[in-house]
Amino acid sequence: MKFDNPQTVFTKVLKLGTLLIVSIAILGSAIGFFAAGLPGLFGALAGAAIALVFVSLTALSVLVGSKLSLGAFYGIVLGGWLLKMVLFMIAISVLLQIEDLNGVAVFGTLVPSILGSLAVDAYVVTKSKIPAVS
């Protein structure tokens, strides 16, 4: 019987999550372009890009942190989380300043990307076989 380790789980999550968000970006930018023109297209691409960066950062921080000691693990995961939230607020406020972006398109790709990647995360974790004794 073949077991997974956290590294294989997270690389699988990152690959599948990227694939899903890229497909949401393509679909969303097509819908955004036909519904709202170029602002819709740019909005959808911006929303998908932000979702990709901020969703992948959590998995990356756990992947990097799991190779270190327990204290460093929590430092990297929680510090990364805090930093990510601040960067997310800055990214949102910058995007709100840009006139040529359709806000509904940003929100409409950001939220499905986040929810879809959650579904991918849950799927990969339930399918993975991590041994109880490391």
Partner: peptide, 23 residues
């Protein structure tokens, strides 16, 4: 190892709420 993966799943679900709220 097992608990860290489960913890990450918990964090991912919780932070989704924050990301949606901030957007």
């Amino acid at each position: 190892a097992k608990l860290q993966v489960t913890m990450w799943l918990g964090i991912a679900f919780t932070e989704a709420l924050a990301l949606i709220g901030l957007a």
